[in-house]
Nucleic acid binder design. Structure first.
Lengths: 233, 233
DNA sequence: CGGGTTTGGTGTAAAAAAAACAATAAGCTC
DNA sequence: GAGCTTATTGTTTTTTTTACACCAAACCCG
């Protein structure tokens, strides 16, 4: 094999850290591997990139095949390329994370086939390949991102209460519940940005005083950004 | 060709945006391509990744072959993988940026061969491949990074004046000279972090009052970080 | 050697932002 | 309607950020 040819004896894949928020906890969607290597181990959903496929498209495809969702928040994080990261050959992988609303998630045939399951971030065990490292890095990226861009809303239903939003932040930033963020200051700050609109409706089905529901106003946010505003929590 | 084989008809490269600071201006080191495609065009230094080489190692190699430097600041930024970004085949590239002290830079045989030259950021023209996009993204990353990590010092000599440091920030952040940052406030802020130590020596060879020289104290910085400090300008 | 030129170095006051802190209101259950 | 649970709201203090102007030190040149 010539030297030039050997450069082409390699492949690349994408791996997608799919975050969700449910039951007051940040979760990640993992699949249990059905084939070697690492058969039976939990792993990040991913796939080789098709020869005629852009990287972002591949990440979207992985997400859609597993969850049926399109057009959700997706961000490239980092590429992992240690020589021996894949036991069967030289495969570098481009890591992405996506943020989905758990309620939108429907099991697809692919997700049955691969036994997909949500795992609380704190309860993720040893994963296949270098996926623990990838998850860590994506988690750090999410923690930074959530503080200076309005991406937290991607994890909540369209309409949410301020308490839910605060719990989301406490969960992502790994702060003690109702201790990390001061309730009054949090509300003051988020409302002062003027990117939330109050819905007519109230929370329903709770055994206590129902809270107001809010929605994130994307248009207004983008307008503010154009005027120099920057989201910061 | 089987489908599996076709996955291996692809290669990956690294491209390195090498930043330097000289004459009060932020610069980037470019090479003029001697071969097709894009012969004669300026481009980012880069190379295919060897089959047994880690990505970071490849980026270090590219840097060393061009500048003779090792152990400098290097950070992976993003991977560019549009299907048609390379005219000769499917090549995805992992972009890095590095920060070097221009005074340490010595032309190596490779840099002669490739006609390497520093270009002011503001005067970079049309580059080969998607290198303008890569440069833009790396520039944005540097602008963010310089504000929340002490990486600016990587671009300055070991000993520097506070005015030089301020000019570096104004240049990287693209602020009007002596207008963007208030001199007194800048000095107050940077000195209050306690990560600069005053040298015995003074600036020499200037036709005006010489300034005190300072050094960045890495050990003290890391100690502070361990105690919860975070650099922020 | 003295006046001019150039950059170096310094403090304070006002404004804005962040942090600390606790009582009342509203709906539900029984 | 009594009791439980969560929702909602403002003020004070502290910290951080911004705005702003003059004297000092060295060199140059005549």
């Amino acid at each position: 094999m010539s030297e030039v040819e050997s450069f082409f004896k390699s492949a690349f894949s994408v791996d997608n850290v799919i975050f969700g928020f449910d039951g007051g906890d940040l979760k990640v969607l993992l699949i249990q591997r059905g084939a070697a290597p690492f058969r039976g181990k939990w792993a990040l959903p991913g796939d080789l990139v098709y020869p005629n496929e852009d990287l972002d498209t591949a990440a979207e495809r992985v997400l859609e095949q597993l969850t049926g969702l399109r057009g959700v928040y997706l961000e490239q994080v980092r590429t992992f390329g240690a020589v021996n990261r894949h036991p069967l050959g030289r495969v570098i992988t481009v890591a992405y994370f996506s943020l989905i609303k758990v309620s939108d998630f429907a099991l697809t045939p692919a997700s049955f086939a691969q036994s997909a399951r949500w795992h609380s971030i704190s309860e993720v065990g040893e994963l296949a390949f270098d996926h623990n490292e990838i998850l860590d890095i994506c988690m750090q990226r999410l923690q930074r991102k959530v503080r200076n861009a309005p991406v937290g809303f991607e994890l909540l239903p369209e309409k949410f209460t301020l308490t839910e939003l605060q719990q989301l932040y406490e969960s992502v930033l790994n702060l003690p519940k109702n201790k990390g963020l001061d309730k009054r200051n949090f509300r003051k700050k988020i409302l002062s940005m003027n990117v939330l609109v109050e819905c007519e409706e109230m929370q329903e089905g709770v055994a206590h005083r129902p809270a107001k529901l809010y929605q994130f106003d994307r248009d207004r946010y983008h307008q503010f950004v154009a005027e120099g505003f920057s989201f910061d929590i």
